[in-house]
Design a protein around this nucleic acid. Structure first.
Length: 245
DNA sequence: AAGCCCAGCAACCGCGTTTCT
DNA sequence: AAGAAACGCGGTTGCTGGGCT
């Protein structure tokens, strides 16, 4: 029984209501059976999409906001050690997701590198324009990602507006004093927070508040919507148990 | 004031891995 | 043991808001 990938499946940004439904169903069934949750919740999303939304946004304990200097340093260290193993790196930064770290890396690190380059070679002609990373040619014969040069898996990338990504990463490495790329060490304990709900709090939770205790559903400013939501969910649950999958 | 450009980030896709039957 | 289904990861895309010209 596979999740049919048809056009009726919703895509794009999640609405607040969808979030609420998803949270409720994850609360009921846990955060493993994504296809099942996608099906029974009536969300009309793929299991993948549900999982992603949960992991990257709805999971309690997610930190939000800027990375702290400590976190930035850790990301650098771990990336030097492990390369683009974002999820592994994320496990060492409680409350941060792989997606977040990945995004952070590409934006902030590259910016840093370019600034550094600029300051070390002031004669450089392109002093104000920074090529948008996203628009870089990423396809083609090589099919090498522009930022996939950290860690053990080294890659070469073409010149980017006169400054190759190789150079950028070299700069980063040098500035951080990371002269060696170690093979992955499996000795680290990787009990992160991501799958254990162990993080104490959300710095900036979603607009609606919830907890693992049902009684804590709290939507002070929209009681009516809450009622509708609960009714809807109850209906979905009813259907679920009447038509057992 | 309006259009353009870009950084930031959420979300999708493809594919390898793990789990289930 | 093998095939199918589900999951998870890494790479990439595309939307949005803010700053700049």
């Amino acid at each position: 029984m596979e999740m049919v990938k048809d056009e009726s499946c919703r895509k794009g940004p999640w609405t607040e209501k969808e979030d609420m439904v998803l949270v409720n169903f994850v609360h009921l069934f846990g955060d493993r059976r994504w296809d099942f949750i996608a099906k029974v919740s009536g969300l009309n999303r793929t299991g993948k999409s549900c999982r992603l939304r949960w992991v990257n946004y709805l999971h309690p304990g997610l930190k939000r906001g800027k990375m702290t200097p400590q976190e930035e340093k850790l990301v650098l260290e771990l990336h030097a050690k492990w390369g683009n193993r974002w999820s592994r790196i994320a496990r060492r930064l409680p409350g941060r997701t792989d997606n977040e770290i990945k995004n952070y890396w590409r934006t902030h690190m590259r910016k840093m590198a370019l600034e550094k380059k600029r300051s070390t070679s002031p004669s450089s002609s392109s002093s104000s324009t920074v090529t948008r990373v996203d628009s870089l040619p990423s396809s083609g014969t090589g099919k090498v990602s522009f930022y996939d040069t950290g860690g053990p898996k080294m890659a070469v990338f073409d010149d980017v507006k006169g400054y190759s990504m190789d150079e950028i990463w070299k700069d980063i490495d040098m500035s951080e004093g990371n002269t060696t790329k170690l093979p992955l060490s499996e000795n680290y304990s990787e009990q992160g927070c991501c799958n254990h709900f162990s993080c104490p709090s959300m710095a900036s939770p979603p607009p609606w508040d919830f907890s693992w205790d049902y009684s804590l559903w709290k939507m002070d400013d929209d009681e009516e919507e809450r009622k509708v939501f609960i009714a809807t969910t109850n209906n979905q649950l009813f259907n679920l148990f009447v038509h057992k999958p």
